[in-house]
């Protein structure tokens, strides 16, 4: 099954490389990727604009789906999405603060990334400090509280921002989009996503055991606090780096793990790779759609919601017995 999904991803990557508002012959694309010399503007469009987007879509989609599958397992709740601990709101606040301070783009992305991590660190520290018997519940509630604070911060920045130069940048920044991705962005965030995926892959079995609840997992020999801490750090790293380059793209982290569970069952060690592959293929295709359906770019979050909402309802109707 995983092999079939990997083939699907390869096909999606090929489609993503070939489809775009500027028509490039498939032969030229393949030749160029394998090192052949191509003429302008093919070169610029392919290597500076389109392939960075395709790669970024693959990493963001795969990363968000993997993070979503992880949090759903960790929090034993199939309705959880990767920004449950406030990472998106925190990263968004960092980025809009960067825009308000008129920082360069890379610094804005960096501030978004750092604030995403800081937000989750605050949530985690808060939950630990409260010493609750039910740490999972306190984590989620702390995430809601801190996320709401970051949301208020975003609103404040919007009020303070210059309406013609900063406000549009802020608005667009908060929309999910891969339209402005540069090769250097991909080079910057790809290692971070991979760095986050590695511990999840290594701890795949233990994360699955955590879905039984803290007491049972500990009685089965899992050091719950350590594993959960590592896993939250890894999933946060993935989500924060994705959000800092692509903005908030909803639905993928929620919907894809459900589809993966339909295909490979609920075991996390299978859901993780399946979600990553499916999320990657899905976002590559959605992004290809985003740049071709209209004369102008369509925000990704809009397309994922348009497609995600009905698919999710269908999944709910179909798979109710899978998890309820």
């Amino acid at each position: 099954m995983l092999a079939a999904l990997a083939v699907c991803l390869l096909i999606a990557l090929l489609i993503g490389s070939v489809v775009g508002p500027f028509p490039l012959p498939i032969g030229d694309v393949i030749a160029a990727v394998f090192g052949a010399t191509t003429a302008e503007p093919t070169n610029t469009i392919l290597f500076q604009i389109r392939l960075p987007r395709v790669l970024a879509a693959m990493l963001v989609g795969g990363g968000l789906a993997a993070a979503g599958a992880t949090y759903q397992t960790l929090f034993r709740n199939p309705l959880v999405s990767p920004d449950i601990l406030g990472v998106s709101a925190g990263a968004g606040f960092g980025a809009v603060l960067g825009i308000l301070l008129s920082l360069p783009v890379l610094a804005i992305q960096g501030l978004g990334f750092v604030m995403g991590l800081v937000t989750v660190a605050v949530v985690y520290a808060l939950a630990r400090a409260l010493h609750s018997q039910n740490e999972v519940l306190v984590l989620v509630l702390a995430g809601i509280v801190v996320g709401a604070l970051a949301g208020a911060g975003i609103s404040l920045v919007k009020i303070l921002a210059d309406p013609y130069n900063q406000l549009p940048a802020i608005t667009f920044w908060l929309l999910g989009s891969l339209a402005g991705i540069k090769p250097i962005d991909v080079a910057g965030f790809a290692p971070l996503v991979i760095l986050g995926l590695v511990p999840l892959a290594l701890l795949r079995w233990r994360v699955g055991v955590l879905s039984l609840g803290d007491d049972e997992a500990r009685a089965l020999g899992v050091n719950v606090v350590v594993v959960r801490g590592i896993v939250i750090a890894a999933a946060t790293l993935i989500t924060a780096s994705a959000v800092s380059v692509s903005g908030v793209i909803g639905w993928i982290g929620l919907m894809i793990p459900h589809m993966a569970r339909l295909l490979v069952g609920p075991r996390y060690d299978r859901v993780l790779p399946a979600s990553a592959l499916m999320g990657a293929a899905f976002l590559v295709l959605i992004d290809a759609l985003a740049r071709t359906v209209a004369r102008i770019e369509i925000p990704l979050g809009l397309l994922t919601a348009l497609i995600g909402a009905p698919v999710f309802v269908w999944l709910l109707a179909r798979s109710r017995r899978v998890w309820s």
Binding site: T73, W205, L220, G265, P266, W323
Partner: peptide, 26 residues
């Protein structure tokens, strides 16, 4: 009741966790 629809074998396999390396599956 479990939130995820594990099979009986999946659940029993989790009993093996303490005998597996930290990064290993069954």
């Amino acid at each position: 009741h479990l939130e995820f629809a594990y099979t009986v074998l999946d659940v029993v396999l989790m009993g093996r966790t303490a005998h597996l390396g930290p990064f290993a599956g069954p």
